[in-house]
């Protein structure tokens, strides 16, 4: 019996998981020390507040202790899905998110491929800086810019068209139901595309230059090199970012929608976040708004899992887990 448990002579016993972990920590203690604040941050700001989601199942009112609020089961969810305004917000959310994904996701990839092809380093830096700059402008300022450009009475567009002799009335694109979602997507792409290029350009920089040289010797032109080398080499990055983006699909951009919204277009761009804001912060209906938030998060999680599963099926080396 003891022969079964004791290792044979000369064989070093395999250390336990705990001792392996401790020895790793001892060896790389500096790295773990650096990791600690991030862990604390996640626990304090991401996990601990999760207790608040119980409000979605409780009759919580201002001044109450969340723990002592009475349980109401699925009441808030039933109320939420009984509200047409919420269903409209959900529909808008899906349409706007999908449009942003469709146009906003490939754009930074294309942009980074184009920037990568710029040979003059000064020009490259100039273009890179220029396209990243809008990311640091707040949505309030972005709306101000759009208003200053598109205002039918005092906008820059009117002046420009005036130079070409056009003096007719201009439509108010910021108050047009037909243009509302387009304006949202355009401003989203304009503001976010530059920042998105950073990751792709970093991935492109890591590609072995020998591949390009070999392809060049084999007679591949710039387009073929881009198609057969650059894109496949950054495929994993693209998929990871796609999964992240899909996970955020239920969040269609509160700041942007909030500042662009007005009574004329709210029916086309009101999303779950803005509806929750109205219910939760303006009307203090914390139960229903938490239920909506929980629904958003849960849907986002499912989307991430599905996308990850698809990514794994297509390419076993990609995906998150």
């Amino acid at each position: 019996m003891s022969n079964l448990t004791k290792p044979p002579a000369g064989v070093v016993p395999k250390p336990s998981l705990k001792s392996r972990f401790l020895s790793t920590v001892r060896r790389d203690w500096m790295l773990y020390l650096m990791f600690l604040p991030g862990l604390v941050y996640i626990l304090v700001f991401k996990y601990a507040p999760m207790y608040g989601v119980t409000i979605a199942f409780k009759d919580f009112k201002i001044g109450m202790d969340v723990m002592n609020a009475p349980w109401v089961g699925w009441k808030h969810f039933a109320d939420l899905f009984g509200r047409t305004a919420f269903l409209r917000a959900l529909q808008n959310n899906i349409i706007i998110s999908f449009a942003k994904l469709l146009f906003g996701f490939p754009f930074p990839i294309i942009l980074s491929l184009m920037i990568n092809e710029v040979r003059s380093s000064k020009m490259k830096k100039l273009v890179q800086t220029s396209v990243i700059l809008p990311n640091f402008v707040s949505w309030v300022v972005v709306y101000g810019l759009f208003y200053a450009i598109l205002s039918p009475n005092a906008g820059a567009l009117k002046d420009v068209l005036g130079l070409f002799g056009y003096e007719g009335a201009l439509p108010n694109l910021l108050a047009s139901q037909n243009a509302a979602r387009t304006m949202i997507v355009i401003s989203h792409v304009w503001k976010g595309a530059g920042m998105g290029t950073i990751v792709y350009l970093a991935a492109i920089t890591g590609i072995d230059q020998g591949l390009y040289e070999a392809a060049s010797i084999d007679g591949a032109g710039r387009l073929k090199q881009m198609w057969h080398i650059t894109l496949p080499c950054i495929r994993t990055t693209i998929i990871v970012l796609l999964i992240f983006r899909v996970g955020e699909m239920m969040y269609a951009g509160f700041d942007q929608i909030f500042v662009f919204s007005n009574d004329a277009i709210v029916s086309k761009i009101d999303i779950i976040d803005t509806y929750v804001y109205k219910l939760g912060l303006q009307e203090r209906k914390y139960g229903i708004s938490t239920a909506a938030g929980l629904f958003q998060s849960f849907t986002g999680l499912i989307l991430v899992i599905i996308t990850n599963w698809i990514a794994k099926r297509v390419d076993p080396e990609s995906g998150l887990v």
């Binding site: 205002s151 039918p152 009475n153 009335a169 108010n172 910021l174 007005n262 009574d263 004329a264």
Partner: peptide, 9 residues
């Protein structure tokens, strides 16, 4: 056209 055209926004 008698109302200032930016009225909605």
């Amino acid at each position: 056209g008698l109302v200032e055209p930016d009225w909605l926004t």
